[in-house]
């Protein structure tokens, strides 16, 4: 982890009519950091993340990702990020290899490099036998691992993960976090939302959103001290129960 700031949000706001989904959020994320982005359902996490990924225009405030403004230079932002959405979003009717080739190609990687990387990746994941398998017939845990590998396939500077381990068994979740650590070791900044408090402990720093605002932001150890809790669960509970909006 370095001191270099790769994500910087200043008063970032998204309003839908009268509803302020994300309300003047300010934070910084450093290069190589694993940044946990926590909050109850409906707290505004996904909205904030979509703005940072250049999918959604901020209503007010500013944010830059990898040095580019998310409001005006969103297509440049997209060159430097990877994204894994809440919903599984690979092509069901393409094989593992075809999905990887497709996204690699879209990011402008050379066919030779794509080929090499696919072989490396599949060997690493122990996926070699599934190379020609249609993605729809993979089990969920494998799908999630594949989706993550795909999100970092083009070596982005930052990867955004929106509840990547939802519905996945504990063993697979563990393996998944190993992948995240490997990515962080390679210098990829990880920005992750989760509802699992044990996962929050794995993060370098954690922010907790309540009703569209960031109410706490620090390392898990400091947060526990600040809120007098034994675990991140206590911290989260102390904050989240003040929330007025639910699903």
């Amino acid at each position: 982890m370095t001191d270099k700031v790769v994500i910087k949000a200043e008063g970032l706001t998204k309003q839908f009519g009268d509803f302020v989904a994300t309300d003047h959020v300010t934070f910084e994320v450093h290069e190589g950091e694993i940044f946990g982005f926590l909050g109850a359902n409906g707290a505004g996490k996904t909205t904030a993340m979509r703005m940072l990924c250049g999918l959604s225009q901020p209503s007010a405030g500013k944010a830059s990702v990898a040095g580019f403004d998310v409001a005006t230079q969103h297509e440049q932002v997209k060159r430097h990020i990877g994204y894994m959405s809440q919903k599984f979003a690979l092509y069901d009717d393409l094989t593992v290899e075809e999905n990887l080739t497709f996204f690699g190609g879209i990011y402008g990687m050379s066919p030779k490099k794509v080929k090499e990387k696919i072989t490396d990746l599949l060997t690493e994941l122990g996926f070699e036998s599934e190379r020609k398998t249609m993605v729809k017939s993979l089990p969920l845990g494998w799908k999630q691992k594949l989706a993550f590998s795909l999100a970092i396939f083009h070596d982005p500077r930052i990867v955004f993960l929106d509840e990547p381990t939802g519905g996945v068994d504990p063993v697979t979740r563990r393996q998944f976090w190993e992948l995240i650590y490997q990515a962080a070791d390679r210098g990829i900044t990880v920005f992750v939302t989760t509802h699992y408090m044990d996962e929050a402990e794995y993060c370098d720093r954690v922010s907790i959103m309540v009703d569209g605002k960031i109410e706490a932001l620090d390392s898990p150890a400091n947060l526990k001290r600040q809120f007098n809790g034994n675990s991140m669960y206590d911290v989260f509970y102390a904050l989240a129960r003040t929330a007025k909006r639910g699903d």
């Binding site: 990924c53 250049g54 999918l55 297509e75 440049q76 997209k78 060159r79 990020i81 990877g82 994204y83 959405s85 919903k87 599984f88 979003a89 690979l90 092509y91 069901d92 996204f103 879209i106 990011y107 402008g108």
Partner: peptide, 13 residues
């Protein structure tokens, strides 16, 4: 509907 458009939209295509 399938959600795959999100994965396209975050690429520079």
């Amino acid at each position: 509907e399938r959600g795959t458009i999100e994965q396209i939209n975050v690429t520079p295509v």
